[in-house]
Simulated scan of single mutants.
Amino acid sequence: MTAAAVTDRRTPHRLAGPAVVTAALLAGTAYTGVQDPTGSGVFPSCIFFAATGHWCPGCGGLRAVHSLLGGDLALALQYNVVVVLLIIPMGIAAIALWWYRAWRRKGTIPVPMWFAIGLPALLGVFWIVRNLPPFAPYLTV
């Protein structure tokens, strides 16, 4: 058996990861678009908010996605500005890059150290700032 035949046979395996993750994200997004997280559907509640009464970096994320899918960008930004402006675009870019690298046989996605440190640091700062009294009216709904 030639090396080309072995490589061609592995193509579905390389694409299985991105395909499963993309399908799960699309299904979850579709469910969030159909069911309103503020009242209907089965959505998880934030354990941190329930225990402390303070917002975590992800609080309002499902409501923001629901508002985005309904075409209300302003309300989505009020629910969670970081999810709308950072997490969703980066997630879409990461999935697209994963598909590209899997298709082109490039291997895993390299994560730069500045990003691995910077993103959690940014989320930590957002976590603190959104719970400070002067900013809470603007960063929580």
Results as ranks from 00 to 15, higher is better:
residue 124 G to V: 10
residue 140 T to W: 01
residue 30 A to S: 07
residue 17 G to Y: 08
residue 66 H to A: 03
residue 126 F to I: 05
residue 72 D to G: 11
residue 3 A to N: 04
residue 83 V to T: 15
residue 35 Q to V: 00
residue 42 V to D: 14
residue 27 A to Q: 04
residue 133 P to R: 05
residue 49 F to A: 09
residue 1 M to S: 03
residue 89 P to K: 13
residue 114 W to P: 01
residue 87 I to A: 15
residue 118 G to Y: 12
residue 65 V to H: 00
residue 125 V to P: 05
residue 64 A to P: 07
residue 14 R to V: 04
residue 74 A to Q: 14
residue 45 S to D: 13
residue 48 F to G: 03
residue 34 V to P: 00
residue 35 Q to K: 08
residue 93 A to P: 06
residue 116 A to V: 01
residue 93 A to M: 11
residue 13 H to V: 12
residue 97 L to C: 13
residue 50 A to D: 11
residue 21 V to C: 02
residue 1 M to I: 00
residue 32 T to V: 06
residue 93 A to I: 03
residue 119 L to M: 14
residue 84 V to K: 04
residue 27 A to S: 08
residue 29 T to C: 07
residue 135 F to N: 02
residue 130 R to M: 08
residue 20 V to L: 14
residue 31 Y to L: 03
residue 95 I to H: 03
residue 95 I to C: 02
residue 138 Y to L: 06
residue 64 A to V: 11
residue 24 A to E: 11
residue 77 L to K: 06
residue 109 I to A: 10
residue 110 P to W: 13
residue 118 G to P: 08
residue 139 L to I: 01
residue 123 L to I: 03
residue 51 A to Q: 08
residue 63 R to F: 02
residue 99 W to I: 10
residue 137 P to T: 03
residue 134 P to T: 04
residue 63 R to L: 02
residue 47 I to R: 06
residue 105 R to M: 09
residue 3 A to T: 04
residue 58 G to Q: 06
residue 86 L to K: 02
residue 26 L to R: 11
residue 20 V to G: 04
residue 15 L to F: 07
residue 63 R to V: 01
residue 133 P to A: 12
residue 126 F to P: 02
residue 131 N to T: 06
residue 79 Y to W: 13
residue 139 L to Y: 01
residue 12 P to C: 09
residue 67 S to W: 10
residue 134 P to I: 05
residue 38 T to V: 12
residue 19 A to W: 02
residue 137 P to N: 02
residue 48 F to M: 03
residue 105 R to D: 15
residue 50 A to K: 06
residue 70 G to Q: 14
residue 11 T to I: 11
residue 5 A to V: 11
residue 113 M to L: 14
residue 2 T to S: 15
residue 130 R to G: 07
residue 47 I to T: 14
residue 134 P to E: 07
residue 56 C to G: 11
residue 48 F to Q: 05
residue 24 A to W: 10
residue 113 M to A: 15
residue 22 T to K: 00
residue 64 A to E: 12
residue 27 A to V: 11
residue 55 W to L: 04
residue 67 S to D: 15
residue 14 R to W: 09
residue 2 T to A: 01
residue 84 V to N: 05
residue 36 D to W: 00
residue 53 G to K: 03
residue 34 V to I: 12
residue 65 V to P: 00
residue 113 M to R: 15
residue 141 V to M: 08
residue 115 F to W: 12
residue 54 H to P: 00
residue 67 S to K: 03
residue 86 L to P: 06
residue 127 W to M: 10
